[in-house]
Design a binder for these strands. Structure first.
Lengths: 216, 216, 216, 216
DNA sequence: TATGAATGAGTATTCATTCAT
DNA sequence: CATGAATGAATACTCATTCAT
């Protein structure tokens, strides 16, 4: 019945199971966002969900499994709200701008989810040294940025730079937002997005055509 | 015996005490860097140091005290190796470049120390909600960057942008390095520094005088 | 699950919970009575109960909570076995006699419980300076004696004396019994009670009517 | 050099040793009186004395030994200030009154010492089940009261009663004072003594000659 | 499905004591 | 004489996990 076993023989999760899993993931997100990853015990999460800790372990193979699924959930929903917008863009520069804007918008719309993820990712490794969230879950974002940057470099929109460094810098700039927002909920995220767009537009664009970035 | 008490009445820590404290701090750094903050129990640190956990609590008032001193140690040595170089610079642009280069150089020279600090800072808050490392210890860096950016804006070297956002982005770009280096020890940090310098030079500089940044 | 939380939302403790709590309280009483409060670690109590220490902390919020509940348990049962008898008395002199007799009888019937309580109360304060058992739990006894003494003084049965001093002396005379009984289990408590009744009857009664105390 | 060894071969404790032992005993008294026995660690006592814990263990065979000597010290000085006064009395009734008064006076003059002793005696037994203070140290007081009571009964001054019960009651009445005094330092001990004298005079005296107790 | 009960390993911390210097 | 260093056992407590019901 645990997720691994499930995927093998039980193709159809019941309605109640789906609901329970979603509920538990939501509660885990809240607790991790509010108390931090270290304080987020199964007992706390269960308490928030109004169930016993046994329920969590009935639906998830263990704490690690739950955390992993929290990661999958947040990154999946994030991706689905960002990717379509980016794919509409016709040039790399617009795509980069859109990616940043959509990312910040997603943070603004889901501050707890994103904060929870950051708390998890930044809490370091698990006991065995493995990461708490599988790279395949969070790397698509890096890959997305990488593709855009390489696209822009191919098309001559972007200057020559290390794509790896630029990706890392962009991603970290975005990842720094959730905790700032938690510390100061009045933070103006629209303005923040505009600053980041301008910052990375200047950081990436090719020199010669000093074409101005159109404000939307 | 413990640091707080010490500073009041006992001006001269013995040689052996100084050595032990340094040794324990070093071992704490290693364990935190290698296993992550959550796995860094006193037992682990003591094991690494080849002493009993009692020894740690003999020299430090508690785990919190040890962690705090790790923070002080790393930030103090970091600052002393960076600040003098930055202060020699005559214009904001050079100061920013130097600050970034010196920061990366410090990471290259002390990868474990910096990784440990990142693991601590990113592990979130303690039980009581207080930070594990006092802001007065790590904020001088932010203030340093802020001063440089404001200086450049005043002097017209830098364009208009949100200093807060830029500082955060720069700092996060630097803070992302230690874990990358841990994952790939062959990472070329000189090149990484050059990329960041170029990136933030373009992100900050004023438009008109398209003066090229001299490569050192 | 823990007592405080329980009283708020969970009106029906399960049978097994009630039994376990009672069992743990009993074992705590035994250990505290036999080894003294200082030696009564959770490990000792758990060992006596044949469970792991975790079980104790599953049913009680902590050691302090357990100790507090031991106090409540003993004082509550003690009070319920003493108070009704006292309240039947029509004059203060009989009430005082009955109170003393019933108190000794309760000690005779529950030597370990009372010894445990004495060990707790006399072990001094907790770390924070707070008492280990709430005054509201053990002060009703003092108040009971006080009321009787004041009643007798009002009615002229008792002479003039400091009620506070007399209460303290009576209570201490009773509290001295459990440890004497532990040291010498053959102690004749009926005789002891008669002695105390006579002692405090003479100590309290008014001078003029040299009316003899009727032996019951 | 430890006390047991000492008594065998070193008949003359040096001046410095005598002073150190006295100093440590005094500090132990203070700490035990102020913090309670449970909180009175060797470290606390050493801190109060301004020495290292090693010093304590140099002059005393262990913590138990120190505690024992605290007991000896307080009971010895107490006895020497009480016994001479009692021995001057020519009748048992006066002796009893004097014993009580002198005991309270000693408490008034040495509240910390007596409170410390009470904290020790009431903290229960040591690890091995042995008492923390040897009975030969504190029983002379009981014997003193016993002798007086038997004397009075032989001479017809006192009525017939259980000497054991009366002794215990008197002693407990006195032992209850130090903690009351600590809780309320403004407690009027002269009045308290008068109350106890009157209380036990009435409790003990023979019926027929209703001779009034002369107020001194 | 879900609960409540129980465990056992792991946490930081305290403390009396030993010992080399 | 005295210190400071170090230990090891014991402390209360947390938590993920197991399991019978």
């Amino acid at each position: 019945m645990h997720s691994e076993i499930r995927s093998a023989n039980q193709p159809k999760p019941s309605f109640i199971e789906t609901a329970r899993r979603a509920q538990i993931i939501d509660c885990a997100v809240e607790v991790i966002a509010e108390l931090g990853f270290a304080q987020a015990s199964l007992a706390q999460i269960a308490k928030r969900a109004g169930v016993s800790t046994g329920v969590i372990l009935y639906y998830f193979a263990g704490k690690d499994d739950l955390i992993r699924e929290v990661g999958v959930h947040v990154f999946t929903t994030g991706r689905s709200s960002i990717e379509p917008l980016v794919q509409q863009q016709l040039d790399a520069r617009s795509a980069l701008r859109t990616f940043i804007e959509a990312s910040v918008a997603y943070i603004a719309a889901n501050p707890k989810k994103v904060l929870a993820i950051m708390n998890i990712l930044r809490a370091g490794r698990s006991d065995g040294g493995t990461l708490k969230i599988d790279p395949t879950v969070y790397q698509p974002r890096q890959i997305g940025f990488r593709n855009i940057l390489e696209w822009g470099q191919r098309d001559g929109e972007f200057r020559t730079f290390s794509v790896a460094v630029m990706v890392e810098t962009i991603v970290e700039a975005l990842d720094a937002i959730p905790s700032q927002l938690a510390a100061d909920p009045s933070l103006d995220l629209d303005a923040y997005a505009k600053e980041l767009v301008e910052l990375f537009d200047r950081a990436t664009r090719a020199d010669t055509p000093v074409q101005e970035l159109r404000v939307r």
